[in-house]
């Protein structure tokens, strides 16, 4: 009961802090520490893969007391993440050191597609790559499709009326759709929805014919037998879905191995002290058993990257995405 009461008091305190904004406390000398709650921006909608992951990170931070100030998640999914990028770019004053963002591949594609935003991702502060998420091609089990050949045949028959649901325009899902269209001579129609969770539901409700969801988004329906993965965009078969071959295995050279980064990035111009602080927090998050369990359960992969290595990774990925977007005529 005592813990309960205490947590209730903290809660009320937390609410007050939220409501009255930042009453800045004087800062002690020594290592940098946040002086107010940290804005934890999520570059995607509520309920999607990025969102669930961000909330897991937030909880791990609280549970292991990795930060002296709480991380407050804010979803800014607008315009394929453009809203978040602008928010980070415009962070000024004390916010520069108190704004971090959970990001995905729209981190590369959105600024490439919208030069007008004036976002240069190389100015953003690297904090940590937490994982790489995987993609599979999904169909409804009632379609009777069990392999890629049947998929291609069915999609060809329906032509432009075959609906591929995905998240946002010019994002990962649309890239993969374009690759599938090009490699197999299909003409699938891409329809954007808000968030991967919603996309998964569109397939389960048969409002779409196929999706390229991440495992975590389809897992519930997959376990219930509603939806079925027929191929993976990974280099080798996934433990979780042993029956789904990879496109590499099928000898389809036109479809690249493709991952989704799950990274944390700080506002441009973040101070060295703050940068170090967040890198430490998230490297600790990565090592917790909760994070490792989550990675295993949702078929995530990839080591923790930070600092220069992460910047280099971004530079490489950005070039790859630039080429992909050019290939499909998006830029």
């Amino acid at each position: 009961m005592k813990t309960l009461f205490r947590s209730a008091m903290y809660t009320i305190l937390g609410v007050l802090v939220m409501a009255f904004g930042s009453l800045v406390a004087p800062q002690d000398a020594g290592a940098w520490e946040p002086r107010k709650p940290v804005d934890f921006v999520i570059m995607a909608g509520k309920g999607g893969g990025a969102d669930k992951m961000a909330r897991l990170m937030q909880t791990i931070i609280e549970k292991h007391k990795l930060s002296t100030k709480p991380f407050i998640p804010i979803n800014k999914p607008g315009g394929s993440g453009a809203e978040s990028l602008i928010h980070l770019k415009n962070a000024s004053g004390v916010n520069k050191d108190h704004t971090v963002m959970v990001t995905l591949n729209s981190f590369y594609t959105t600024p490439l597609r919208q030069p007008g935003l004036g976002v240069d991702i190389s100015t953003f502060t690297p904090v940590g790559r937490m994982a790489e998420d995987t993609f599979l091609l999904w169909v409804h089990k009632d379609s009777g499709i069990t392999n890629v050949d049947q998929f291609v045949k069915a999609a060809k028959a329906k032509g432009n009326n075959w609906i591929m649901a995905g998240t946002g325009k010019g994002q990962e899902d649309q890239l993969l759709t374009s690759f599938l269209n090009a490699a197999y001579g299909l003409n699938m129609k891409y329809v954007p929805f808000k968030g991967g969770g919603r996309v998964a539901k569109e397939l389960a409700g048969k409002h779409a014919d196929s999706t390229v969801n991440n495992p975590s988004e389809q897992l519930g329906f997959y376990q219930a037998g509603t939806t079925r993965p027929i191929a993976a965009f990974t280099p080798d078969r996934m433990e979780l879905f042993p029956d789904a071959p990879t496109f590499q295995e099928l000898g389809q050279k036109g479809i690249p191995v493709y991952f989704m980064q799950r990274s944390v990035v700080g506002a441009p111009g973040m101070s060295k002290g703050a940068q170090k602080y967040y890198q430490k927090v998230f490297s600790k998050v990565y090592k917790t058993s909760e994070w490792q369990d989550y990675m295993k359960k949702k078929s995530l992969r990839g080591a923790f990257l930070t600092g220069k290595k992460l910047k280099k990774y971004w530079a490489v990925e950005k070039d790859i995405h630039q080429k992909m977007l050019k290939d499909i005529g998006e830029i």
């Binding site: 813990t3 947590s7 937390g14 909330r55 937030q58 909880t59 931070i61 609280e62 549970k63 709480p70």
Partner: peptide, 9 residues
């Protein structure tokens, strides 16, 4: 949202 992390106890 604020109270979510409190629930781990």
């Amino acid at each position: 949202a604020i109270l979510l992390p409190m629930t781990f106890i």
